[in-house]
Amino acid sequence: QSTEQEQSASLTEVAELPACQSSNPGHLQLVSKLKNPSGSCSVDVSAMWWEIAGFKEPCIITACEYVVSLWKPLNTLQWEKLYSWHFTEVPVLQIVPVPDVCNLVCVALGNLEIREIRSLLCSSDGKREKQVLLSSGNIKAVLGLTGRRLVSSSGTLCDQQVEIMTFAEDGRSKEKQFLMPPEETVLTFAEVQGMQEALLGTTIMNNIVIWNLKTGQLLKKMHIGDRYQASVCRKAYSEMGLLFVVLSHPCAKESELLGSPVFQLIVINPKTTLSVGVMLYCLPQGQAGRFLEGDVKDHFAAAVLTSGTIAIWDLLLGHCTALLPPISDQHWSFVKWSGTDSHLLAGQKDGNIFVYRY
């Protein structure tokens, strides 16, 4: 029955333009829609290159609780499901895209916390799905890095380990290296754009830590203030001796003066650890909600708000450039920028994935 269902739904319908399209003139254009037929709750989406019959295709990866699927484009409107990886015991929490890698995607599995990280790939003849267990345990955070690498932190305070693994062609880890752990739990990681040897982490104590990936040294711990708790670093770049960091603020409270800050750009002097706020990215007047989930790519930030709406900011212009209200009374539950083009991938819990051109 499940095979029949999957086959009948493996080709998506040609997308219909939603009723709210008129509220996003010139910014978001619906390109296509994927309907995930697995029936379980949809959790994540990503876009990556996959080599099919000798050609690299811009594919979409969808993750439901127990199935991860790879979709290849048939044309600009339609997608065909090519592979599905099934999980029986532990549900999928998130897709972990690894930049610079083709034909391989990682996933984090677990219930509330990550228990396993697996790489998903297919056999050399392209006929069978394969998965490799990369690490297991009490994993707190994971991020795919440029140069076929993956960083993860595991364990608790006194036995915390921060580990970098490099991928071999077969999807297994080729090399492992440990970074010096800070004396507080690392919650998220972020690369520093253009600096392959630098890595940032945000900690439970609202600090940003910086490592040298080549030597494993912990270089600095920088406090970013207690104004916004649970802030997460979404993007970082170094310019003129300063570190510019885009943070998301899930716990920011709305104020009359500033509105509701969802993202913030701060600048840190890594030598002195002093930091200053540069820009707050707030919701337009009349919009309510806090940051729930989001993604930053180049100078664009997208967030799903607690109201169920998606909001997009141009980080250079400094203001919100598009709003995407819930469609068919279904709140948005996650949003990702495509890694292969300028598309925005927006997902709903029931499995619908909408592909927008921005």
Binding site: M180, M195, E197, A198, I210, N212, T215, Q217, L218, L219, K220, S238, M240, G241, L242, L243, V267, I268, N269, P270, K271, T272, L274, S275, V276, G277, V278
Partner: peptide, 23 residues
């Protein structure tokens, strides 16, 4: 922002911090 609020700036901060930090 006011540069004075951030203290002295170094263009080679990454290399300098790597030399200063414990191995």
């Amino acid at each position: 922002c006011n540069q004075a609020d951030l203290g002295p700036i170094s263009l080679n901060w990454f290399e300098e911090l790597s030399l200063e930090a414990p191995p």
